[in-house]
Amino acid sequence: MLQLKKIHHIAIICSDYPVSKAFYTEVLGLTLQQEVYREERQSYKADLALHGNYVIELFSFPNVPARLSFPEAAGLRHLAFAVESVAAAHEELMKAGVEVQEIRTDEHTGKRFFFFSDPDGLPLEIYEE
């Protein structure tokens, strides 16, 4: 059996690089570790970290096709971030102008969570730790 250690990173392709970069760094608070522009691909690549741990590669490419998010399509369903206070995260995102769903409770774990979307409609979740 393959001996996986952990998830190394998640790659996200965005349609508007400056908007998505600002969302992930200024709204969600990830830090920019490295940013490169690849001239031959007309593409930016940003390495983003959460508490010093590299977690997301943010890419731009010219003329990317839209991906269905709603109704739910096959593939990655959502990306979830753990927080101590779901209510505080909910309030903070609303103050930043992000449209958020209502806080719900997971019927199996009793933990609170809610969903919202990144600038391209990628479903994101905040989940109580």
Rank of each mutant, 00 (worst) to 15 (best):
V36R: 03
V27K: 10
F59G: 06
A82K: 10
H8K: 09
F70A: 14
T109H: 01
V27P: 00
L76M: 15
S85A: 06
A22Y: 13
A73T: 14
N63M: 02
A66N: 12
L79K: 02
V36G: 05
A66W: 00
P123L: 05
E107S: 09
A11N: 13
K111L: 11
T31C: 05
F115Y: 14
Y17D: 07
Q3A: 07
Y44K: 11
R77K: 15
E40M: 10
F115C: 06
M94C: 08
H78M: 09
L32P: 05
R112W: 03
V83G: 00
F61R: 14
V27N: 03
S60W: 07
F59S: 07
L50A: 06
T105C: 07
F113Y: 14
L4D: 01
R77F: 05
E99G: 09
D16T: 15
Y127H: 09
I126S: 00
Q34S: 10
G121L: 07
R41P: 05
K45A: 05
D106G: 10
R38S: 02
P65D: 00
I103A: 01
L79Q: 04
S20C: 11
P123Y: 01
F23Q: 12
A88E: 15
E72Y: 03
I7K: 01
N53D: 13
E128F: 01
L28T: 13
P123N: 04
F81W: 04
S15H: 07
E35M: 13
F81T: 03
I7E: 01
E26D: 15
A82C: 03
V55T: 11
H90Q: 05
E102M: 07
P65F: 02
K21E: 13
A87V: 12
E102P: 04
S43E: 12
L124G: 09
L68W: 04
H8C: 03
S117T: 15
Q33D: 12
Y44L: 05
T31R: 05
E129K: 15
S43K: 10
H90S: 04
T105D: 01
E102C: 04
A73I: 14
V83P: 01
K45T: 15
V19H: 04
